[in-house]
Simulated scan of single mutants.
Amino acid sequence: MITVEGLSKSYGNFRAVDDVSFACQPGRVTGFLGPNGAGKTTTMRIMVGLTAPSAGRVTIGGHLYQDIPNPGRHVGVLLDASAQHAGRTGREILSIGAETMGLPASRVDEMLELVSLDKTEAKRRLRNYSLGMKQRLGIAHALLGDPSVLILDEPANGLDPAGIRWMRGLLKGYADRGGTVLLSSHLLNEVELIADEMILIGRGKIVAQGDKASLLAGAKHDTTNVSSLDNDLLTKALEHEGYSVAPAGAGLRVESAPVDVGRVAADNTIVLTDLRSADGGLEDLFLELTSDTQRDVLPEGAQA
Rank of each mutant, 00 (worst) to 15 (best):
Y129G: 01
E5G: 03
Q135I: 04
T235Q: 13
E197N: 12
A208P: 00
I199N: 04
A175W: 03
Q135E: 06
I2R: 01
I60L: 15
P71G: 11
V181G: 03
V20T: 06
L187I: 15
L171D: 07
G132L: 03
L171Q: 07
N268D: 11
K172V: 15
K119T: 07
V20R: 00
V115W: 00
L234R: 02
N225K: 14
D176P: 06
D211E: 08
F32P: 00
D211T: 07
V115H: 00
T290C: 03
A266Y: 09
P71F: 04
E241P: 01
V191I: 14
Y129M: 00
S54W: 03
G204H: 01
E300I: 07
A162L: 12
L79D: 11
V264A: 04
P247V: 10
D260S: 09
T43W: 03
P161I: 09
A237I: 09
L193H: 13
A23R: 15
R15Q: 15
M44V: 02
S227C: 04
S184A: 13
A217W: 04
G27S: 07
L159P: 06
N70M: 06
D18S: 14
L287D: 02
T100V: 15
D232H: 12
V4T: 05
M1Y: 08
I96F: 13
S130A: 02
G210R: 08
D279Y: 11
L182V: 13
K236C: 07
N157W: 08
M111F: 08
K134F: 04
E110Q: 14
G90C: 01
L285E: 00
D160W: 06
S95D: 10
G169F: 13
M198S: 09
G281N: 10
Q84I: 05
V191C: 10
S244H: 12
A156V: 11
V271E: 15
I60A: 04
S184E: 13
R253D: 03
E99G: 11
L282V: 09
D19H: 12
Q209T: 05
K212F: 03
V48S: 05
H186C: 08
E288K: 15
L234Q: 04
D118E: 00
L229H: 15
P71C: 05
R15C: 13
D230L: 12
R28Y: 09
P147L: 06
V271W: 12
F14Q: 14
L33E: 00
D284C: 01
A195T: 08
S214I: 00
R127F: 04
S291T: 10
V297L: 08
N189E: 14
T30C: 12
L137D: 01
L287T: 05
G202F: 02
P35N: 05
A246D: 11
D80S: 02
R295P: 00
S244F: 12
A81E: 11
L188K: 09
L216F: 11
A16V: 05
G132P: 08
A156K: 02
E190F: 09
M198T: 15
T235V: 09
F32E: 04
L275Y: 13
V29K: 01
A156P: 10
R88Y: 08
G62R: 14
A142H: 05
L287M: 10
G132M: 05
A195N: 07
A23V: 14
V77Q: 02
S8G: 10
V181C: 10
R263D: 02
A278F: 11
D292W: 03
I151S: 03
A219Y: 10
K40E: 04
N70D: 13
Q25T: 13
T235F: 06
T235N: 09
